[in-house]
Design a protein around this nucleic acid. Structure first.
Length: 685
DNA sequence: GCAAGGTC
């Protein structure tokens, strides 16, 4: 029997549909398997990696095992998809030939080798490998006609990454979690991808915090051409000196002379096909978070509306029939007009982006959906994919631009206008359309009335926080993560409490963690670790290096990092604890900096505030009776959040329940100081 | 309970 193995179920379905004439479906352990009796073949789809790496069980305890000892701990390969592994083991004995048909990339090669190892223990089958970039009949048939050997070096490169990521990630995660006393589900995490991402967000926040705003001035004239008004700005733009601007402002008269008017044409090229990053960016500007965009795209893909959403590719492969895809929309109430227009073009020339990869085609619609077939959230993204596909087959749009030079009392002013003269792709893809800026019909020599002149005081603004789309783009540019994981890295930072809100901003603990790691474990905070790893993985693929040598070199480096971390342990510990306390509901203990907590007395269940540093720190504060809430506002002196209290309900004489009225109690530390000063009168000399 | 990488 010829066994064919794909990376995912959908690929098994598509490939078997193409290569089998007499396809039947069965389930082994619940895993679908496609068979052809005439070809004596079977196709099974995996679900990505089916095994994972982990340390031997004796390294499980975070408290008993020093984090450093994970560096040289034994690593095991453990089946993570047991159903699929079992199905492979059942199929293996009857296999005489096995074809690995996983995705055409490094991880795909490794996933194939994972299956190879499981099967080759139970079978003497011969193995080969096919590589393809899309599921068209032409491409799949070609791939199966020219199989190649498995690239074990490439798979080893992937394993090298797995080992290094596990060792660095686990050892450093445990170290900082223990140092920061953040254990259990509150643990802190560190990794080759997530930590440099956090550092980018923290660095930006520091730029914003340290930004000093400066005032500047602009001179703007409102001019009248017959009944139309328009504005012109002084050519200098920003005046940093108010006096300089005032002198000019005062000398400006009531007449303006148009010195020149230049018109020009500008073309905006149509956008490139969607890969994952471009898609996430576009969805992000429609208000979707990176991970919700990917979640919804996954659902659109599973339900057969769009192609595979995890791709690096921005160039449609030649085998993709663009005309047929446009043809799907001929009868759509929403899209038919656009589709027919595009089909009527003499030639269909798609745009192409810079990234051309072999993994999957760019994201495009694979079926025409009706509006009633999905909810708003899905529809908006589906429409985005359809419109983007249309836009990539459209001509550029054209702007008519106009530049006027205007003289007012010897001072030079300028006014710019633009008008969309040919919509091109913007007709099909209206997202983020800039507005026309029209100027009235003016020509050189015109004399205009100056309606008014404004001397505007403005101030320079701090840089903006990066949005999620921008962060995903930056990660791609820096080589951090992959198409399938970048949005997950962001999510991880949210769930660890390192960032909050959207656009993401770092929490105090996120900032202190980066500070501590930058001082004592720089390597893990920059994208350089990834680029070095990429170089080494290429070398392993080309057999210039051996996986084991790269891993042991990396272990040596990590030992050096631990030398520094361990010798600065108490400083790191204090810093992280302090950061965590700033994020806590109440605030940091004024005596020792650890987070304060709400506790109850054992005897009478009275609530009070206690330091989490107990028993080293025995600081406590009283709380008023009733329900306690903490305000966002912080006491200037003690940095503690102000307490809002609602006294417990009471009963009046008639037995009716009287609800307590909520009031602001204030800062618990201030209250304690007041109480002490009241109890111990200050003796005046 | 740790990473990052696949995919459900």
């Amino acid at each position: 029997m010829h066994l064919i193995i794909t990376e995912k179920h959908d690929a098994a379905n598509k490939i078997s549909g193409i290569i089998f004439q007499d396809r039947t479906t069965e389930r082994i352990n619940g895993v679908p398997v496609y068979r052809s009796a005439s070809a004596n073949s079977a196709v099974i789809g995996l679900a990505g990696h089916i095994v994972e790496l982990d340390f031997k069980p004796e390294y499980r305890s975070w408290s008993a095992i020093p984090p450093r000892s994970l560096i040289n701990a034994d690593i095991l390969t453990i089946p993570s998809k047991k159903d699929i592994v079992n199905a492979l083991m059942k199929l293996a004995p009857s296999a005489t030939k096995v074809t690995i048909a996983t995705d055409y990339d490094r991880e795909g090669e490794l996933i194939g080798v994972e299956a190879y190892r499981i099967i080759s223990r139970l079978s003497r089958a011969k193995f080969d490998r096919v590589r393809y970039s899309s599921f068209t009949k032409q491409e799949i048939t070609k791939a199966f006609a020219s199989p190649a050997p498995i690239d074990f070096n490439m798979a080893a490169a992937g394993e090298c990454r797995q080992e290094i990521d596990l060792i660095w990630g686990a050892a450093l995660t445990r170290f900082v979690s223990i140092a920061g006393n953040k254990l259990g589900k509150e643990f802190l995490s560190v990794g080759r991808v997530q930590t440099p991402l956090l550092a980018i967000i923290v660095d930006r926040e520091k730029e914003i915090q340290s930004f000093v705003s400066k005032p500047y001035w602009e001179i703007v004239a409102s001019l009248l051409k017959e009944k139309d008004t328009f504005t012109a700005s002084h050519k200098k733009g920003r005046f940093e000196n108010k006096d300089e601007a005032s002198v000019i402002y005062k000398k400006l008269g009531k007449k303006a002379i148009v010195k020149s008017v230049k018109t020009d044409k500008k073309k905006d090229p149509a956008p490139v096909p969607f890969n994952t990053t471009e898609f996430v960016k576009a969805a992000s500007s429609l208000g979707y978070s990176a991970s919700s965009a990917m979640q919804l795209a996954e659902e659109l893909y599973i339900n057969g509306w769009i192609s595979y959403p995890r791709t690096d590719n921005t160039v449609y492969p030649d085998t993709l029939n663009l005309k047929d895809i446009l043809g799907l929309f001929k009868a759509s109430p929403e899209f038919a007009m656009n589709a027919l227009e595009l089909l009527a073009q003499k030639t269909l020339v798609p745009t192409r982006g810079k990234v051309e990869s072999k993994d999957h085609p760019p994201i495009y619609p694979v079926a025409c959906a009706k509006r009633s077939e999905m909810d708003d959230k899905h529809w908006k993204l589906y429409e985005l994919v359809v419109r983007r596909f249309f836009a990539t087959l459209s001509p550029p749009c054209e702007w008519e631009t106009i530049k006027a030079e205007i003289d007012i009392s010897g001072e030079q002013f300028g006014s710019d206008g633009k008008m969309l003269s040919f919509p091109g792709w913007r007709k099909y893809y209206p997202y983020g359309m800039p507005k026309d800026e029209l100027l009235p019909p003016i020509k050189a020599g015109d004399i205009l009335d100056v309606k008014k002149i404004d001397l505007l005081e403005k101030k320079t603004e701090p840089p903006k926080r990066y949005g999620q789309g921008k962060l995903v783009q930056m990660m791609e540019d820096l080589g951090l993560g992959t198409k399938a994981t970048r949005h997950e890295a962001l999510n991880k930072l949210y769930s660890r409490g390192f960032i909050e809100k959207n656009p993401p901003q770092p929490t105090a603990i996120g900032i202190t963690l980066i500070d501590a790691l930058k001082s004592h474990a720089t390597a893990i905070t920059t994208p350089d670790m990834t680029s070095a790893l990429e170089r080494d993985m290429d070398a392993i693929t080309d057999s210039r290096m051996k996986k084991d040598d790269v891993v042991s070199e990396s272990k040596k480096m990590l030992h050096k990092v631990f030398d520094q971390l361990e010798s600065n342990r108490s400083e790191i510990s204090r810093a992280i604890k302090r950061g965590g306390a700033l994020d806590s509901e109440i605030g940091p203990c004024p005596k020792c900096g650890s987070p304060l907590l709400i506790r109850e007395t054992k005897a009478d269940k009275k609530k009070f505030i206690a330091c989490s540093g107990f028993p080293d720190c025995r600081n406590t504060y009283n709380l008023p009776p009733g329900t306690i809430k903490f305000d966002k506002a912080v006491c200037e002196k003690h940095k503690l959040h102000l307490i809002k209290a609602t006294p417990p309900s009471t009963k009046d004489r008639e037995g009716k329940t009287v609800r307590g009225k909520s009031y602001t109690y204030g800062c618990p530390a201030c209250k304690k100081e007041e109480a002490i000063s009241f109890a111990v009168p200050v003796i005046k000399k």
